[in-house]
Simulated scan of single mutants.
Amino acid sequence: MPDTLLATDADNPGTELWTRREIEQQPETLRATQQVLRARRAAIEAFVAPLLARPELRIVLTGAGTSAFIGECLAPWLSKLLGRCVEAIATTDIVSAPQYHLRRDTPTLLVSFGRSGNSPESLAAVELLDGHIAEAYHLVITCNAAGALAQRAGANSLVVMLPEATHDRGFAMTSSFSAMMLAALSILGGIDALDPRVPVIAAGVEGALAQAEAPAERLAERGFKRVVYLGSGVFTGLAREAALKMMELSDGAVVTCFDSALGFRHGPKTIVNAETLIVVFVANDPLVRLYDLDIVRELRRDGHSGEVIVVSAQPADGANITIPGMAQAADPDLLFPFIVPAQLLGLRVSQLLGLTPDNPNASGAVNRVVQGVRIHAAQA
């Protein structure tokens, strides 16, 4: 995707709209990501397989902001799949309080996610691990070969570079989020195991793009002041990412909240009023799904919110957006199509607010690559 090629909004000629393009390219970039992993399978398996064979190995998924939420989405599933505790700990937490998160005598694999790989905390987390843990390993999944994170990798490290198109130009991470998440799911869960599922996932994302466009337009035009995303299991992390997308793309004009289906009743439900939109991600897992549907029925019965939207792969759920062809899919595979409606809604709200989605914060208070971070020395 050359820098000279711009997507434009018909209502705002010349306005860069990388964000829309990057949302819409996700089926393609997911397929391309898996192709990259297949091509590097020998090197990846040579690095990962001996580590996963060690029962004492600790696995930490890390990143900042959206990159951290990848870990929050995947950690529950990977813990179950690998039969060990896989932890999601943000670089911002590791760097600010390493004494709570690093264990000197425990062999640790740090899986670092970075769109640009230039966030100060990303590099600092790697250096802290090397300085504070006797046996540290690094798996770097990034979209930018020139980034500091990719360039820093040395001994006991493997860098997995994703396709250039995943290095999102827009402020809000979209295709970089889904591509790095797919890469981690494939590498840690088995490239061969994920291979036959990628076409189904990509087709599900295509279906979500087609189905969610009109609802996103309608909901954006209603001008909700508050948006709540709810999800359980792997979808709690996704709800957090969805809430961030709305906050970023609206430049904070829309108040957002995220929670699990059960957790929402314990205080956060007070956010609900007539100006609140609630979006519920309904799991395929039979038990999780029961709790998701319970909160949907309760919220609709209460009638206090402006609207309750259901995103599901099950037609029987009476979903507003139903992901085609994924009724039998495992929940982590649904992460990819489920995030699409939230991305499209955030994009359209941004446009209706008169913002530039690729750079919604014109004041410069926040930046595509975080600035103003001072890294302080930590005691060994």
Results as ranks from 00 to 15, higher is better:
1 M>P: 15
3 D>Y: 15
8 T>L: 10
16 E>W: 09
23 I>D: 02
25 Q>I: 12
27 P>S: 13
32 A>D: 09
36 V>K: 12
38 R>A: 14
38 R>H: 11
47 F>D: 14
65 G>S: 08
65 G>M: 08
76 P>S: 04
78 L>K: 07
83 G>K: 01
108 T>F: 01
110 L>H: 04
117 G>M: 07
125 A>R: 02
128 L>T: 06
133 I>T: 12
136 A>R: 02
146 A>S: 13
149 L>H: 00
151 Q>K: 13
156 N>M: 14
163 P>I: 08
166 T>I: 03
173 M>R: 05
179 A>L: 09
182 L>I: 05
185 L>A: 09
186 S>L: 03
194 L>G: 11
195 D>W: 04
197 R>E: 15
198 V>E: 01
200 V>C: 14
201 I>F: 09
204 G>Q: 06
205 V>Y: 13
210 A>I: 10
212 A>P: 06
221 E>D: 14
230 L>F: 06
236 T>F: 15
242 A>G: 10
254 V>Q: 05
258 F>I: 01
262 L>F: 10
286 P>R: 03
286 P>Q: 05
290 L>R: 11
293 L>S: 05
313 A>I: 03
315 P>G: 01
326 M>Q: 12
331 D>Y: 01
339 I>K: 06
343 Q>K: 01
344 L>N: 05
344 L>K: 14
352 L>V: 11
352 L>W: 08
352 L>Y: 12
360 P>F: 08
368 R>D: 03
375 I>T: 04
